[in-house]
C-alpha cells in the first residue's frame, strides 16, 4: 500500500487531534472528504464511472460479455473483478509492485458480491446451463490518497448503475439448437438494479477513537481498521479487520454502529447524485479528465 512516513511528533499530533474530534483538515471523525462522481467516462465499455475522493482517483469499467454459467449455479450469470494499481499513482506500483494490493482488493470485492442479495444474478441468465452474461468489472487505481476501499466500492456501484446490457432473444430452430440474437437498437437494453449493492466503509482506529475516510497520514497512525460492507438499509453484509494491531470487542461494536450510520448517509447521497446525473440526460456536459 502506498504510504507516507511520519515522525513521532506528527503522529502524536494527529492522534491527540482525533481524541478531540478535530482532524488535521478540520473534519470531524465521521466526515467524508468532498467527493466527485461521474459515469459514462469511457465509451468502449458497457458502463463506467470515475470517483475522486480527495486525492484518491478511481476509474471503473464494466464490460458485459457472453459466457457459460458456472456448474454449481446453472441459472445465474456472474461477476469477475480485476484491480489494476497503475504506476500513475506511485512509482512503487511499477511492473508487478501493485499486484499484492490489487489481489487484496479483488478478494474483498468477491466476498462482498458473493452473497446472492447484492445483484440479481438470475437476471443475467439467458439460457440456463448454456448462456449467460458475465460482467467483467475492471478497477483502475489512478491516484492514491487514502481510503481506497470506500472509493472503489462507490465507483463499482456507480459503474454498475451505468451499465447497459443489450437485450437478447433466444431463437430456437427446428433441430432444437438455440441461437442468440442481439437486439439491433443500441438503446434497447436492460439495466441492473443496484439498490442492494453494498458500499464499503473503512473505519480506522486511531488512539481511542475511530475515524471514517482516513487520509494517508491518518492511515500511518492507525494500527487497526475495520472494513464493513453496508447496504442502503444499514444491513451489514461483510466484515473484515485489517492492519497489524488488535481491536477489543467493545470498539468493534462501536465501529459497527458508526459504520451503519455513515453507510446509510453514503447510500442516500450516492443515489441522489446518480439520479441527478441521469435526469440531466444528454444535456450533461461530460467533464472526464479534461475539466
Amino acid at each position: 500500500m502506498a504510504s507516507v512516513v511520519l515522525s513521532e511528533a506528527e503522529k502524536v499530533y494527529i492522534v491527540h487531534g482525533i481524541q478531540e474530534d478535530l482532524r488535521v483538515d478540520g473534519r470531524g471523525c465521521e466526515d467524508y472528504r468532498c467527493t466527485e462522481v461521474e459515469t459514462d467516462v469511457v465509451s468502449n465499455t458497457s458502463g463506467s464511472a470515475r470517483v475522486k475522493l480527495g486525492h484518491t482517483d478511481i476509474l471503473v469499467g464494466v464490460k458485459a460479455e457472453m459466457g457459460t454459467p458456472k456448474l454449481e449455479k446453472p441459472d445465474e450469470g456472474y461477476l469477475e473483478f480485476f484491480v489494476d494499481c497503475s504506476a500513475n499513482a506511485t512509482p512503487e506500483f511499477e511492473g508487478r509492485g501493485g499486484e499484492e494490493l490489487g489481489t487484496e482488493i479483488v478478494n474483498t470485492l468477491y466476498r462482498i458480491f458473493s452473497n446472492g442479495s447484492s445483484i440479481d444474478l438470475k437476471s443475467l441468465c439467458i439460457n440456463p446451463r448454456e448462456h449467460c452474461w458475465v460482467l467483467y468489472v475492471d478497477v483502475l487505481l489512478l491516484e492514491c490518497g487514502g481510503n481506497l476501499f470506500d472509493a472503489i466500492s462507490i465507483a463499482v456501484k456507480a459503474a454498475l448503475f451505468n451499465t447497459r446490457i443489450p437485450k437478447v432473444r433466444v431463437l430456437e430452430d427446428d433441430e432444437g439448437s438455440k441461437e442468440i440474437e442481439l437486439s439491433d437498437d443500441p438503446y434497447d437494453c436492460i439495466r441492473l438494479n443496484v439498490d442492494n449493492v453494498p458500499c464499503i466503509i473503512t473505519l480506522s482506529k486511531i488512539g481511542c477513537r475511530h475515524v471514517v475516510d482516513a487520509t494517508l497520514q491518518e492511515e500511518a497512525c492507525s494500527l487497526a481498521s475495520l472494513l464493513l460492507s453496508v447496504t442502503n438499509r444499514g444491513t451489514l453484509t461483510c466484515m473484515k479487520k485489517l492492519g497489524k494491531g488488535s481491536l477489543d470487542p467493545e470498539s468493534i461494536f462501536e465501529m459497527m454502529e458508526t459504520g451503519k450510520k455513515v453507510g446509510k448517509t453514503l447510500h442516500i447521497a450516492l443515489q441522489k447524485t446518480l439520479e441527478k446525473e441521469e435526469s440531466l440526460g444528454t444535456t450533461r456536459q461530460k467533464v472526464g479528465f479534461l475539466g
Binding site: 466526515d31 466527485e36 461521474e38 455513515v262 453514503l266 447521497a269 441522489k272 447524485t273 450533461r284
Partner: peptide, 13 residues
C-alpha cells in the same frame, strides 16, 4: 453526526 458530500464534477473555468 456524519456529513457526506457527493457531487457531479463541474468543468473548470
Amino acid at each position: 453526526m456524519a456529513a457526506m458530500e457527493l457531487r457531479l464534477p463541474v468543468p473548470r473555468k
